[in-house]
Design a protein around this nucleic acid. Structure first.
Lengths: 207, 207
DNA sequence: GTTCATTTGTTAGAGCTTGTAACTATAGCG
DNA sequence: CGCTATAGTTACAAGCTCTAACAAATGAAC
């Protein structure tokens, strides 16, 4: 039996495992927030939790597995935030605005997690392993659905282009590229959303 | 005298220093290309060059200084590529297309260097230290100049928005996010450039 | 041409990291 | 109550960055 996935999930032992794994992940996220992926150290996490270093290898096969799990969690969390924003009783255009704002808010509130999504801190290029691709798709689906109410047809390009624009802005903002040139990121974001909306609706009914 | 900046640049010793530093950087870039920032190891570079690990600390104060220098070089190289693309005898709109294409080409040809620019592999948030901000400005200036010939006024927003859009697309493409959803990045890029151009010229003469 | 200081290299080692191996104690389950 | 799986321990290998102390070489001045 695999060492890091042993035990029944329902039993007392399983619950203990889940709790420890959760504590490890929480500590890892804090390290990530404070010092970036470089600062995430299994040893340091163990020390913070009051156990010896190797103890944690009972819960995660290695550093990468821990990181991968954090990435997966982040994807799900972002998707949930977008879904929540899209859930309101709004007109399609406003719903798109709400989703866009939620996207940016989520990223700004926890830049370290956003970086985790789009900046592979993993050595191998397995960032887009199956499970992660599926997790990422979740968020894209929300954008796709909202766009579906706004423009007819099911061309995937508008959705991807919008996503790409949002990502570009958020990524540059998070990395501090706007601050160094005295620009208001919020204004930029609003303008970009407006421009994209105009473009989308213009394409729908071209005079 | 500082240990890593000693000696006259012109003398025989200075030339030797410059040559060694260059060899170190070349090797570092290869490691970066093969395994990402994590894989860049001062020790491994030294071994490749046939010297002991600590020897390289005569040429670079530490790993971060080496990385910072690579970032600076990359900024300059990108700016040069953009300038070259903008130098041709083209109409403003075509010049913008050429610069956009050059931007993408540069990034695709050496994704590890592009990542170096926008994804700080440095622990501290000093990625935007003065010298780096200035280096980054070089590329922005090219975009700004080309845009200046296309639309009147000197509002910085259009330039930043265009830059952000290009970055979003290139970043997602490099990280493999399009490949996993069967999209043609080149097509996406062309469409985005067209849309941006239309938007810019429409804003210039609004009916 | 000889001397001298600077520079470049060396090895040793501290202190960190990830991860494995071997062993012990505990605690849930039958 | 006893057995076995689990969770913890320490010791250790192999790697990393970087400092300290020392030896050799070499450009430059006299």
């Amino acid at each position: 039996m695999d060492e890091t996935t042993s035990g029944p999930a329902g039993g007392i032992r399983g619950r203990f495992r889940a709790q420890v794994r959760d504590e490890v992940k929480r500590t890892a996220l804090r390290q990530l927030a404070e010092g970036g992926p470089q600062a995430l150290s299994v040893n340091a996490i163990a020390k913070e939790l009051g156990v010896s270093g190797p103890a944690l290898y009972r819960y995660f096969a290695n550093r990468d597995e821990l990181l991968t799990e954090l990435v997966r969690d982040a994807y799900h969390d972002l998707a949930a935030a977008l879904r929540a924003a899209a859930g309101g009783d709004l007109a399609p255009a406003d719903r798109l605005r709400a989703v866009g704002a939620a996207y940016r808010d989520w990223a700004l509130r926890q830049p370290h997690r956003y970086r985790l999504l789009y900046t592979a801190p993993l050595p191998g290029y397995d960032t887009h392993a199956e499970q992660l691709v599926r997790a990422a798709q979740e968020s894209m689906d929300v954008v796709r659905d909202v766009l579906g109410d706004l423009v007819p047809g099911d061309d995937p390009l508008p959705g991807v282009m919008l996503w790409s624009r949002l990502h570009g802005l958020v990524d540059l903002e998070i990395e501090g590229n706007f601050a160094s040139m005295r620009l208001d990121p919020a204004l930029l974001f609003r303008r970009e959303l407006d421009a994209s909306l105009r473009e989308l609706t213009d394409a729908a009914r071209p005079a």
